[in-house]
Design a protein around this nucleic acid. Structure first.
Length: 753
DNA sequence: GACTAGCGTCTGTGG
DNA sequence: GACGCTAGTC
């Protein structure tokens, strides 16, 4: 028994209810783990870092650790804080825990805090909104809301959007908040940045006035709350004995500070109250640097918390050997890894199949054909994943799946809560909850159209500016036509609020859809059918939300309306129908993290797409893309397909690209080209669509559009266009990283490659 | 003030 | 190829 244990046992029953029963379960659970996993689960209550490779049983270790801590009486459920990055991961953890622990201990509603950083901070801020300086009904701005709030701000201040693009400004604000930096503390060495910092301050002031908080604000505000409020900080530091963090490599600086503070390491305050942090992560799977994640936090954590226990989980239970070997070979090209090599007891398995299509259409056809074969061979549809780098790529795959009559399900993309009609309905709901929410106000003040045009809005904004109030409150101070039409709208909201007070949430939404005129509007619209269905689906979502007490992010007794709105902002995806249906799974590589499938297709493996051109420029960006590829490959259990296309429709234009450099980084002996590329290329030479290319092919000795060529200085490239005749023939060649060049055939010595 | 056509922008990933 | 924004018309 660890001597430190006594300290953590304070005030807890030594033998919690159900102890005997779970102890049996516990030993079963423990004996089903491998030695490293078991060591991790049963570590003494000290800070620990578990470097868990893909498919090494990370979630299992995390949840078993919690079950072990609770069922051995080292802490009450109350003392557990578990943080994840996605709602999906949080849900899975809850589900596994309730299966492992008896109902009275395993029910997360009984005091365990399990959730995403954003969800937990939201919960904290709701519970202590006064101390945090927020209204009880504060609303959460998602990224789209944030952009429109910034646009409105710039307009009000008369700032030129060209000089300060709203998206860029949003990025500036978020990046600073993620570093824990307020506008006043932002470093600015030039006028431009100084101005941006001023706008950051103005934006925050606007949010404060309107009672709204963006995503990053949730974290920053929660951090500041705990920093400033000593009794509160003490309360939570004493409460949470064990903080478990999933995907630690994805934490940004602010999240790390937040953890440090809760664990009693915030600048050395109250170390005696400190919780133990059990961090699980994999530096090779860090794919969120773009939103501020710092892999360095893994190392910082190890150093700053003097972590004595670092355990590596390297045995992979998921993939066959070839897949793992290929993934290992790929990731070895990254520098500065913490070091880890996955191995498996499963056999080598199938080779990795590589397909080169003439076009994205060709590629999609191959993928769907192959998927059909696999299904025929007995693979279930839901065990087939079609992965891509960006959401835009799903379209062509969907087209071919549809044509083949194969059920499929797309994750991500346009999310349910992002749909126009749903956002409109939610805006009404937000106004009922918080009339000061100007973003919501402007969204629906004239939707459906009710005669409130630009002039009235301008008058209203002036009035609001004069008396420093929200648009809603300023309505009373208007005169003339504006007063009449805006007054009608305000009365509509008032009526809604009055008549729906105390009603169950689904009924509130049902009424607002009717009385706002939304339903009538979409009924009259030619293609409003889908939108009406989505509005009904929103009512369903509210129904299942209300009945799902355990999932409510807030403490019991909290305003259900506010909780639902928070839920809609924080859990924008996931709420899609057909989850149970046996369908082929389509998603981005990012969305696939943490999942596994019997067969995986990684599509669009082309320079500029994967790795993406926005990242390929600098080395860090490229390494993140490589980790992304690593994540994608390690999703596969038995079969892995890699495909790319010579041409692809992008922005409505045909684009020619080279195969991804990641394909070259895989050991050739593990790969098998399929689809008879060589044979097909011989019988159907490329360059069919472009007559100029065809001519060029005839005249230029076999060179044609789509042809891979080599240039003495620029290296390998692909011909994308041709013009001119005879000795004047010029071709445009895409040399990947070297850029796009126009070359005269006569002088540039291009050789077929 | 409502509605429409045409234009430009951009799809890089998520809470 | 989709959406948002603007200018022009009713």
């Amino acid at each position: 028994m660890n001597p430190a244990l006594g300290r953590y046992n304070r005030g807890l029953p030594l033998s919690p209810p159900g102890h005997g029963q779970t102890a049996t379960n516990m030993s079963d659970l423990l004996s089903s783990l491998n030695p490293e996993q078991r060591a991790a689960v049963t570590l003494p209550p000290q800070h620990a870092l578990i470097l868990a490779g893909a498919g090494s049983g990370k979630t299992r270790v995390l949840t078993t650790r919690i079950a072990w801590l609770v069922s051995t009486g080292q802490t009450a459920p109350h003392g557990i804080l578990a943080v994840t990055f996605t709602n999906k991961a949080a849900r899975e953890m809850r589900a596994r825990l309730s299966a492992m622990l008896p109902a009275d201990l395993g029910n997360p509603a009984r005091g365990m805090w399990i959730g995403t950083f954003h969800g937990l901070c939201n919960r904290l801020l709701r519970a202590h909104h006064r101390e945090a300086g927020l209204p009880a009904t504060f609303q959460i701005l998602d990224s789209a809301d944030q952009i429109s709030a910034i646009k409105r701000l710039l307009k009000n201040l008369g700032v030129d959007e060209e000089r300060f693009p709203p998206r860029e400004l949003a990025g500036f604000v978020n990046a600073h908040k993620e570093q824990g930096i307020r506008a006043g503390e932002a470093e600015a060495y030039d006028d431009y940045t100084r101005r941006r910092a001023e706008l950051y301050a103005e934006y925050d002031a606007q949010c404060q006035r309107e009672g709204v908080a963006d995503f990053a604000e949730l974290l920053l505000r929660a951090h500041e709350l705990l920093c400033r409020n000593e009794p509160l900080r003490r309360h939570y530091q004493e409460r949470f004995r064990h903080i478990l963090v999933d995907e630690f490599q994805d934490t940004n600086r602010l999240q790390y500070q937040w953890l440090k503070l809760l664990a009693g390491r915030g600048g050395g305050q109250f170390p005696e109250h400190g919780a133990c942090i059990f961090a699980v992560g994999d530096d090779d799977q860090s794919i969120y640097a773009f939103r501020g994640a710092e892999i360095g936090n893994l190392r910082n954590f190890e150093r700053e918390f003097e972590v004595a226990n670092v355990i590596r989980l390297e045995q992979n239970y998921r993939s066959h050997g070839n897949i793992l070997d290929a993934a290992n070979a790929l990731i070895r090209n990254n520098r500065g890894r913490l070091g880890k090599n996955l191995w498996t007891e499963a056999g080598a398995g199938e080779p990795i199949r590589v397909f080169e299509g003439f076009s994205d259409d060709d590629e999609a056809r191959f993928v769907v054909d192959e998927a059909r074969e696999l299904i025929r061979a007995g693979v279930s549809r839901r065990q087939l994943a079609l992965l891509y780098r960006s959401n835009a790529q799903s379209r062509i795959l969907e087209y071919h799946l549809l044509k083949a009559g194969m059920p499929y399900r797309v994750y991500g993309g346009l999310r349910f809560f992002d749909r126009q009609e749903v956002r409109h309905a939610l805006a009404y709901l937000r106004l009922i909850a918080n009339p000061d929410d100007d973003t919501a106000f402007l969204r629906v003040v004239n939707f459906p159209a009710r005669g409130i045009g630009g002039r009235s809005i301008e008058a209203l904004q002036e009035a609001a500016h004069r008396v420093h109030s929200s648009l809603y409150n300023a309505a009373a101070g208007l005169s003339g036509r504006a007063a009449a039409v805006v007054g009608n709208f305000v009365r509509l909201i008032e009526t809604l609020r009055r008549e729906t007070a105390g009603l169950p949430l689904p009924e509130v939404i049902g009424q607002l859809i009717e009385k706002s005129g939304l339903r009538a509007h979409y009924l009259a619209e030619k293609e409003g059918g889908d939108r009406l269905e989505n509005l009904d689906e929103l009512i369903n979502a509210a129904t299942s939300f209300s009945s799902d007490e355990g999932m409510a992010p807030n403490d019991p007794g909290a305003d259900p309306l506010a909780s639902f709105l928070a839920h809609a902002s924080l859990e924008a995806g996931e709420h899609q129908a057909g989850e149970s249906e046996d369908a082929v799974q389509l998603m981005t590589v990012h969305a696939a993290k943490g999942l596994e499938f019997d067969a995986v297709f990684i599509t669009g493996l082309e320079q500029g797409l994967f790795p993406h051109e926005n990242s390929a420029a600098d080395k860090q960006g490229l390494e993140e893309e490589r980790r992304l590829m690593y994540v994608a490959m390690t999703r596969a259990r038995e079969r892995l397909y890699l495909s790319h296309a010579q041409t692809r429709l992008l922005h409505g234009q045909t684009r020619y690209s080279l195969p991804s450099l990641f394909l070259e980084e895989l050991p050739g002996e593990l790969l098998r080209p399929v689809g008879g590329r060589a044979a097909r290329a011989a019988e159907a030479p490329f360059a069919s669509q472009d007559p100029a290319g065809q001519e060029c092919a005839e005249r230029a000795g076999g060179l044609r559009i789509g042809q891979n060529v080599r240039h003495a200085r620029f290296g390998l490239g692909v011909i994308v266009a041709a013009e001119g005749q005879g000795g004047d023939t010029r071709v445009q060649v895409n040399f990947g990283a070297q850029g796009m060049k126009w070359l005269a055939l006569e002088y540039a010595k291009l050789t077929a490659a």
